[in-house]
Amino acid sequence: MISLLPSVLLLLLSQYATAASDKPLKSCTVVSPTSDRFFDLNPLQRLPPPGDKKKKKEGDEGSWHAKGYDYGANFTVNFCGPVVEELDAVQDLDKPLWRNVSAFYEKGGKQWAIGLENSVPIFRGRKLILNYTGGSLCPSSSKSKRSPIALPHDVREIITDPDKDHDDDKKKPKKPSKDKEDKNSRRKTTVISLLCDSDPLAKTSISFVAAVDDCSYFFEGRSPFACGGVHQETQALGPGGVFGVIALIAVLVYFVGGYVYQRTVMHQRGWRQLPNYAMWAGIWRFFSDMFVILTSSCARFMPSRRGYSRVSLGQENGRRGRRNEDENRLIDNLDEEWDD
């Protein structure tokens, strides 16, 4: 029974640790499937200044910037959140979606979104990737138009039969709907590959790598936050918790083992079944005596009728003193009479 108690407690602790490790991760965090390292990209996210959101003040860094070099435009990117800058002319996006743009560039006086907000980084093998999708329309999709379908020569002839005309209308190809065109169109996307920079003095940086047919944009970021670490939330107990569990197990083993020994071997009953009963009884008597001493000393400061009793005792003592004097005088008188 005693040997099973620690194993049961350890089993409960392991179940608790498993339940804690199954908790969903917070946004912008990921655990590597190969190394089990924990990556938290939240410190990389630039936030708008407090107060008036999306309003950049003097001295504020804003979002992350990357030079486009030969592309002809510079890029503005934020990690796991929308850009800090205020957008006012984003192409091919509804106005409610402008607040969710996480990467864009300006070219020809227009703003082109290259990805909407995404707070779920992923791993491609050993590569840490952050992917933004749903930006502005790609040039191939926005400029392309469907050419009219050429009808056969016999269909173009004038037909006077209404029944035949009705049948031919069913054979005419229908114009595709706008929803189908939107599904077939492509939108700009962004892929950010994050690399570890373990230099203690290193700062986070992002650079533009390439753009594929003005539709897919690739960036490379370097940061100490991309090096990963130990996931603190997976640790069910800290050092203090582990010490407390060990102490709890030791106390339980002491009391349960002592109880079994006193009852089975020493044949004790009642409170004497406790291990080291004499020691615990002595401690209890010590505290009870201290309580009595403290309460009795505090009782002196409580109001009482002792003043009246002292006055009465003084009067009685005075009377007794007078009686003793009278008796002494009487005895002296009697002695003088006997002498005569």
Rank of each mutant, 00 (worst) to 15 (best):
I2C: 11
L5S: 02
L9H: 00
L10F: 03
L11W: 00
S14W: 02
Q15H: 06
T18C: 03
A20I: 11
P24D: 14
S27N: 11
S27M: 08
S27E: 14
T29N: 09
T29P: 00
P33A: 02
R37Q: 11
F39D: 01
P43T: 03
L44C: 04
Q45N: 09
Q45V: 10
K57Q: 12
D60M: 07
G62W: 01
H65L: 12
A66Y: 05
K67N: 14
Y69N: 11
G72A: 00
G72V: 01
F75H: 01
G81P: 07
V83C: 04
V83S: 02
V84E: 00
E85Y: 06
V90Q: 01
Q91Y: 04
D92A: 08
L93R: 00
L93V: 06
K95Q: 15
P96R: 00
R99V: 15
F104L: 04
F104S: 02
E106Y: 04
K110E: 10
A113H: 11
A113T: 00
I114L: 09
G115P: 07
E117T: 13
N118Q: 08
F123N: 04
F123E: 01
R124V: 13
R124L: 14
L128Q: 07
N131M: 11
Y132F: 15
G135Q: 04
L137N: 01
S140T: 13
I149M: 13
L151F: 10
V155L: 10
R156C: 09
E157W: 07
T160I: 09
D161V: 10
D165H: 06
D169L: 12
K172D: 03
P176H: 03
S177R: 08
R187M: 02
C196Q: 04
A202D: 05
K203D: 12
I206F: 03
V209C: 02
V209H: 09
A210G: 04
A211W: 00
D213F: 07
F219V: 11
F225M: 02
V230L: 11
H231K: 10
H231P: 00
H231S: 12
E233N: 08
Q235V: 13
L237C: 06
G244K: 06
G244D: 06
V245H: 01
V251W: 08
Y254H: 14
F255Q: 05
G258W: 03
G258I: 13
Y259F: 14
R263D: 04
M266P: 00
H267R: 11
H267F: 04
R269H: 05
G270K: 13
W271T: 09
W271A: 14
W271S: 10
Q273E: 14
P275H: 05
P275M: 04
M279Y: 15
W280S: 14
I283L: 15
I283Q: 11
F287V: 15
F287I: 15
S288E: 08
D289G: 12
D289P: 02
C298W: 13
A299G: 06
R300S: 13
F301I: 06
M302W: 09
Y308A: 12
V311F: 09
G314L: 14
G314A: 15
Q315D: 07
G318A: 12
R320K: 14
R322Y: 09
R323N: 03
N324L: 13
D326W: 06
E327C: 13
N328W: 03
I331W: 08
D332K: 03
L334A: 08
D339S: 12
